[in-house]
Design a protein around this nucleic acid. Structure first.
Lengths: 111, 111
DNA sequence: TTGACATGCAACCAAAAGGTTGCATGATGG
DNA sequence: CCATCATGCAACCTTTTGGTTGCATGTCAA
C-alpha cells in the first residue's frame, strides 16, 4: 500500500504508467525515448513501479516487456480514496440538503 | 496535482488525514497525541498537507483548527485514478467476455 | 500582569531519493 | 564468430525529505 503511494508520488513514474496505458508491453529502451534522462535512471523508476506491482515484466529474448497492472490502483481506490470520495459526496449532499432547507423557508438568511 | 500525490506518499500524513476524517477540526496539539514524533515534525507534515490543499486551517484564538478537504482526492480520482479504474474494469470485462466465448463453444482452446 | 499553553520559525542532521558514469552480461543477426 | 543492441549492476554524487533541538511569539486565564 505504502509502496504504491510512494511509487505514484513521482511525476516521471506516473508518466511511465501513462505511456504504458497508451501502449502496453514496451521495452525499457522504448520507454526511454520520451524521457530526458539516462536509461539507468528510467530503469530505476521501472524497478520502483515493479516493486509496487504497478508494472509487470515479461522477458522475451534480450528484451524485457513492461505491462501496466492497474490492480494496485484499484485497491488504493477501494481501500483509501473511496472513503474520502464518500466524504466528499456526503459534503455535497449536506450542502444540497441545506440549500433545500433554505428553499423550504427561504426567508431564512444565513448572511 | 503533483503536490497532492507527494503529500499522500507519506504514511504519517495519510494517518493525519485519517484522524481528521474521524474527527474534523483538530488542533496541532491534539493531532500530536497519537504520533511518536515531535510537535514540530507534525507541524511540517500538516504544512505539506495544507500546501496540497488537503487540509484547510482556521485560526481560533491561540488555536489553529485543521479541517480535512477531500476535494483534491476527488480530483485525483477524476483526473487520474478513474482512467486506470476503467482500464481495470475493461480488463475484467474482457476476461468475462473471453470466458463466455469459451463457454459458448468450449472446445475452442486458446492455449 | 504573568505564567502556562499553543503555535511559529530557523538551524541543523541523517537518511533516502533521483540522477549520473562506467563497466558487465547476455541475446541477435550477418 | 563478433559487432551490436538491450539490459543489469555498482559506485558515486547532489538534493530532498523527515526528523531533531532551541528559542520566539501570541493568547488565555487567574
Amino acid at each position: 500500500m505504502d509502496e504504491v503511494f510512494k511509487a505514484l508520488a513521482d511525476a516521471t513514474r506516473r508518466q511511465l504508467l501513462d505511456r504504458l496505458y497508451c501502449e502496453n508491453g514496451q521495452t525499457l529502451h522504448a520507454l526511454c525515448e520520451h524521457l530526458d534522462m539516462t536509461r539507468q535512471a528510467v530503469a530505476k523508476h521501472l524497478a520502483v513501479l515493479e516493486a509496487a506491482n504497478l508494472v509487470v515484466v515479461v522477458r522475451s529474448g534480450r528484451e524485457k516487456l513492461h505491462y501496466l497492472n492497474p490492480v494496485p490502483i484499484h485497491e488504493i481506490y477501494e481501500r483509501w480514496i473511496g472513503k474520502y470520495q464518500q466524504h466528499h459526496l456526503a459534503a455535497l449532499s449536506a450542502l444540497k440538503t441545506s440549500l433545500e432547507e433554505n428553499r423550504d423557508h427561504d426567508d431564512d438568511d444565513d448572511g
